[in-house]
């Protein structure tokens, strides 16, 4: 799966969980750029992403990503 496909699928997850159809994600997108992406919703997103890509992040990673690009890297590294 290439990175643009990962980001596309992430976008769909964000739209569903945050319940906002206007969300677009890019490598540089951070939590500050997305309305409703707070620390609690973050957990919900993490669990949904884990389920969608059938993987488990470790505890450190969950707080570590600076932006969507790093999140996508984590995912790409696991499903490669």
């Amino acid at each position: 799966m290439d990175r643009s496909e990962i980001i596309h699928q992430l976008t769909n997850i964000f739209i569903d969980i945050i319940d906002n159809g206007d969300i677009s994600l890019y490598n540089e997108t951070t939590a500050n750029d997305v309305d409703g992406w707070d620390s609690l919703t973050h957990i919900q997103l993490v669990v949904a992403i884990e389920k969608h890509f059938k993987l488990r992040f470790n505890s450190k990673e969950i707080q570590g990503w600076k932006n969507i690009g790093e999140l996508a890297d984590s995912i790409a590294g696991r499903i490669a």
Partner: peptide
């Protein structure tokens, strides 16, 4: 229970 979520948030019930 999901340990990674608990360690990060103090939530003991999994989302599911």
């Amino acid at each position: 229970f999901q340990a990674s979520v608990y360690i990060n948030t103090e939530i003991v019930l999994s989302i599911d």
